[in-house]
Nucleic acid binder design. Structure first.
Length: 424
RNA sequence: GGAGAGGUGGGUGAGUGGCUUAAACCAAUAGUUUGCUAAACUGUCGUACGGGUUAAACUGUACCGGGGGUUCGAAUCCCCCCCUCUCCGCCA
């Protein structure tokens, strides 16, 4: 959520930025935000003044009664009666302005950073880097959904039996590969300076609002209604919410947390032709990295996080590309996002495996995550997060790209975490 | 699941309708004193939204788990909800 004070600071910049998002009538949207806020302020001023009078008179009543001046007290009581009607109508106006303002602000996405290219969709994303040589597979190469059956390592039918479609069962070397990759990603994160966190995989309502899954994306989360808990769609939710209503000082910064969790997504309405096999699941595993920085450092951190993700992909010897997302393809809350995609040779498609974003103050504003300087000055912090990495599509790419006549060759980087070198 | 006790600032903790401008202590922080350290003493020390100012100073309102209510006036009284702890039950 944008701050009104930040909009006021540079209205033109906000308008230009939001125009890049292809929102129509940005000017009138911002104008109404500012005018509602003006009305809110005016209402509050009058309300506070009236309340001050009531407080003062109440004190006088107390003093009069102590002196035994009942008549004086009654007179004062009458004057308060008039103020009270003013107050109650001002209160309902204030509430109305606040609600209207909040509803407008909830609908406004984050302002893209200046470096974000303009565009409308995936085709306008800027390719920042691509692996030179894409692998070509031998005759008879199989897509991963056939390979997992051939080697009996991931079973969708069994998952369907015990849970439903999109909940795979990993078996034997398939299960061990999952475990190895989680350990590999966590170890690499630790080496990169992250503290490991193991959070709950359900969160309460307040946490859902904190990172913005609620109220918009309620339908995308599994909801345990008996206890009003939500299954997390990503570790971003619990790990970022650790810092909800928190004030950090210089000594606490930067924050670098990493955590592995399963992730649950209902993916309502998004099943189609390209979501076979591991490409889209209701439950999958992911290691997430989260950083919190002072504003002046957040873009350097974004680059650092990207480097970390790239190093993982290189160690896994996967062909990949890095995209700077255009304004039209970026998430609602992000100011700048890089996507990483691995090349799936048998499908001849790029698969998104990581998304690294700087949210600037957009999340921090809802979270009330702030920094207090030595001088006592308060400011919102910048939050960043990224996948490092999501497993299923990495598994798909490894299976497809590394298939040989003898079996599937495990990348060297994973060998310390496994007791086999080949799936056969 | 049953019964009971609680929820007050960074922490401990006082406060049963106006004496509170939320005491006191601890922690933190700045200073004084001191050969150094320690101690002592003095000051500062919440957040949000406003007004005010070039910026400050200054100033209004709200906040004692959350939401309502009673009252001229609520941390305090009433109602609903949430959470924590203890004991019992069940249990990986």
């Amino acid at each position: 959520m944008l701050q009104v004070s930040a909009i006021r600071e540079d209205v033109e910049k906000v308008i230009q930025g939001l125009k890049k998002r292809n929102i129509k009538d940005v000017e009138s949207l911002i104008t109404s935000v500012l005018s509602i806020d003006d009305q809110r302020k005016l209402t509050q001023k009058n309300l506070d003044d009236d309340k001050a009078k009531v407080n003062a008179n109440s004190k006088l009543i107390g003093e009069s009664l102590k002196k035994g001046d009942v008549q004086g007290a009654d007179k004062l009581k009458d004057s308060i009666g008039t103020l009270k009607t003013l107050i109650s109508s001002a209160e309902s106006n204030l509430l109305r302005f606040e609600t209207e303002l909040k509803e407008l602000l909830y609908k406004i996405p984050n302002v893209p950073d200046e470096k974000v290219p303009s565009g409308f969709g995936a085709d306008d994303n800027q390719v920042v880097f691509t692996t030179d040589l894409l692998p070509t597979l031998p005759e008879g190469a199989l897509p991963h959904w056939d390979l997992i059956k051939k080697y009996d390592i991931i079973d969708f039918d069994l998952g369907t039996k015990i849970a439903g479609a999109g909940f795979p069962v990993y078996k034997g070397k398939g299960a061990k590969l999952q475990r190895a990759m989680i350990n590999f990603f966590l170890q690499e994160a630790e080496n990169a300076g992250y503290r490991e966190i193991q959070p709950p995989i359900v969160v309460n309502e307040a946490s859902g609002y904190g990172t913005g899954q609620l109220p918009d994306k309620e339908g995308q989360m599994y909801h345990a209604t008996a206890d009003n808990l939500y299954l997390i769609p990503t570790a971003e939710v619990p790990i970022t919410n650790l810092y909800r209503d928190v004030i950090l000082t210089d000594e606490d910064l930067p924050v670098k947390n990493a955590g592995y969790t399963p992730c649950f997504r209902r993916e309502a309405g998004s099943w189609g032709a390209h979501v076979r096999g591991l490409n889209r699941l209701h439950q999958f595993d992911k290691v997430e990295v989260v950083q919190i920085h002072k504003p002046e450092n957040s873009y350097a951190a974004l680059e650092e996080m990207c480097n970390h993700v790239e190093s993982l992909l290189r160690k896994l010897e996967l062909p990949y590309r890095k995209l700077l997302l255009c304004s039209g393809d970026m998430g609602f809350t992000s100011a700048m996002t890089y996507d990483f995609e691995v090349y799936s040779a048998a499908q001849q498609r790029w698969l998104e495996v990581s998304s690294v974003s700087n949210f600037e103050t957009f999340q921090a504003n809802r979270l009330k995550l702030r920094h207090k300087s030595k001088e006592g000055k308060m400011q919102l912090l910048h939050t960043l997060n990224g996948s490092a990495l999501a497993l299923p599509r990495i598994v798909a790419a490894i299976l497809e790209n590394n298939q040989t006549a003898e079996g599937i060759v495990i990348p060297k980087a994973l060998l310390p975490y496994l007791n086999f070198e080949m799936i056969n």
